[in-house]
Design a protein around this nucleic acid. Structure first.
Length: 283
DNA sequence: CGTCAGGTCTCTA
DNA sequence: TAGAGACCTGAC
């Protein structure tokens, strides 16, 4: 990766494994949008970022170099070598195709609390509805801040305190029966009974057990929190799409041991490719 | 209008 | 341990 500082921001070129469309449609984040053709806007932690695709497959990050390195470099997981991961699927014909179709996927390092709540919302829902719910939640319960670059105001993701103390507002966000799961989880975080930062430092098994002990959090959501919010990349969440792929191409038996340490990344390629193929493909 | 969606809980056997 | 039914609601 080459980083060039310009007046409008930072230009990244010679990027390996980076495709904004793929990243934001791979179902791991819900606060990014294609603002206009080849321009994306998203909010992470407390910051708004605009990214533009330039020629030659280089991207303009509209932020200072300092912010790029202090926030976005980690957020987009630029330290990880996805090329090596993609090479490791050699010999598996389905995954070989999957890493070509989703060659620009990365696992974002998102805020753990936001991920926990968002994936509680995701259960038995769909991506457009999840986005709607999360946006309403942010508007009603998240702090309003002004963008430093004059791109307007926006709402942060609500704090544990805001969600814990406003159950009736949470219930009015269209999240259905999940409202009590959200409020309960927020209360556990607020009181310190659940320490998400701590879970980052313990084993994946221990973190998993702590997460599924939450009311309304099962193995699927727990694995998503591990993968997207806590950087435990070894989780392999099995959802509807993964199940379809495993049934059709692996007779329901997929040996993940080969991908020890980064099973979740493999899962993400599988999910993305499976969804690209569409439901009819699996009938 | 019905159907369905990146699940989880509860009850039953 | 396994299976069935309930659960909210917007997007299509």
């Amino acid at each position: 990766m080459q980083v060039l500082e310009v007046a409008e921001g930072v230009i990244l070129s010679r990027l390996d494994s980076f495709n904004m469309n793929q990243i934001i449609t791979s179902g791991q984040c819900f606060r990014w949008n294609e603002f206009r053709k080849n321009v994306w806007r998203g909010i992470a932690f407390d910051t708004l970022l605009e990214i533009e695709l330039l020629d030659n497959n280089s991207y303009l990050f509209k932020c200072t170099k300092e912010t790029f390195y202090s926030l976005w470099y980690d957020y987009f997981d630029f330290e990880r070598d996805y090329e090596q991961i993609k090479r490791s699927v050699e010999g598996d014909s389905f995954l070989e195709k999957a890493v070509v179709v989703g060659d620009g996927i990365r696992i974002l390092r998102q805020d753990s609390f936001e991920i926990l709540i968002t994936f509680i919302i995701s259960q038995c829902s769909n991506i457009p509805k999840i986005k709607t719910n999360v946006n309403i939640l942010c508007q009603k319960l998240g702090a309003y801040v002004e963008d430093k670059h004059g791109r307007g105001g926006y709402h942060l993701f609500p704090t544990p305190k805001a969600l814990a103390e406003n159950p009736e507002l949470v219930a009015s966000c269209g999240v259905g029966y999940r409202d009590k799961y959200i409020v309960n989880a927020a209360r556990k975080v607020l009181t310190g009974e659940l320490n998400l930062d701590h879970l980052r430092t313990v084993s994946r098994e221990e973190a998993f057990d702590a997460l599924i002990s939450l009311y309304g959090v099962g193995r699927k959501v727990a694995n998503c929190v591990l993968l997207f919010g806590l950087q435990h990349l070894d989780g392999f969440p099995i959802d509807l799409w993964i199940k379809k792929v495993l049934d059709k191409h692996y007779q329901g038996l997929f040996d993940t041991s080969r991908y020890n340490g980064y099973r979740g990344v493999i899962q993400q390629y599988m999910f993305y490719y499976g969804r690209t193929l569409g439901a009819s493909y699996f009938e």
